[in-house]
Amino acid sequence: MTSGAGGGADGAAPGADGRADDAGAGGLSARDTAVLAVERRSWPSAGPKERYIRERLGLSPTRYYQLLNALLDDVRALEHDPVTVNRLRRVRAARRTRR
C-alpha cells in the first residue's frame, strides 16, 4: 500500500501522559495521525523508515513503536484509519501467535 505521508513533524509537545496535547481528527493528536500516516506508506527497508521517524517525528524508533502499539488498541485510531489499524492488528496477532 502506498500513500504519501505528507507533512513533516507535528511539532506538538507531549503532555503529561506522553501524548501530544493538540487533538485533531477524531480526537487523535497530530502526532498520532502522523504515526498512522507513516504506517500507511510502503518502505523499501527499515533504514529509511527509521530515519524518517527520527527526523520528521522527532522520536526514537523504540518510542515510535511503543506509541504505535498503543494506537492499535485505541478506538479513535480505528475510526480514523480502519484499513491500516486492522492490517497492523493482524500483523501483531500473527507475531504473538508465532512466539
Rank of each mutant, 00 (worst) to 15 (best):
R56Q: 14
W43T: 02
V91Y: 11
R56Y: 03
G7H: 11
D17H: 13
W43D: 05
G47W: 09
R87T: 08
L57M: 10
S29W: 03
E79R: 15
A37G: 10
L57E: 05
A34D: 06
V35E: 00
G4F: 08
G18L: 11
G7T: 11
G26Q: 09
R63K: 14
D74R: 05
R63P: 05
G24I: 00
D10R: 04
D81N: 09
G15D: 15
S60C: 07
K49M: 13
R87F: 02
S29E: 07
E39G: 00
V91F: 09
Y52S: 03
A25M: 07
G24Q: 11
S42K: 07
Q66W: 08
T84H: 04
A9T: 04
D74V: 07
V91D: 11
Y64K: 06
L78H: 14
R98C: 02
R76G: 09
G18Y: 11
S42P: 00
T33V: 01
L88T: 00
R51V: 08
A5T: 01
V85E: 07
R98K: 14
A12N: 12
V38E: 06
A12F: 02
K49T: 01
E50F: 09
R89E: 00
G26N: 10
G18T: 06
V35I: 15
R90E: 09
L68E: 05
L78N: 00
T62E: 15
V38G: 02
D74E: 14
L57I: 01
R19Y: 09
L28R: 05
L68N: 06
D73A: 15
P48S: 01
N86H: 04
T97F: 12
H80L: 08
G18A: 13
T97I: 03
H80K: 10
W43G: 07
G26T: 01
A77H: 05
A12G: 15
D21V: 13
L67Q: 09
V83S: 06
P61I: 04
T2W: 11
D10F: 03
S3Y: 11
V75A: 15
R51E: 13
R19V: 10
W43M: 04
D81T: 06
Y64P: 03
R19Q: 13
E55Y: 00
P48R: 02
A94V: 00
A5Q: 05
A20C: 14
L88P: 02
A12Q: 15
P44C: 01
L68S: 08
L59C: 03
L78R: 14
G6Q: 08
L71M: 14
N69I: 00
A12T: 06
A5C: 01
A12I: 08
G7P: 04
R99C: 03
S60D: 08
A34C: 12
E79M: 06
R92T: 01
A46M: 01
R98T: 06
N69A: 13
E50K: 06
L36K: 04
T84R: 10
D22L: 08
Y52K: 03
R95F: 05
T33D: 01
R95T: 00
A70K: 11
R19H: 12
R51L: 12
P44N: 02
R95P: 00
P61K: 11
G4K: 08
A23D: 12
R90T: 09
A93E: 12
V35F: 02
I53G: 01
D81E: 15
R99K: 02
T97Q: 15
T97W: 14
R51D: 13
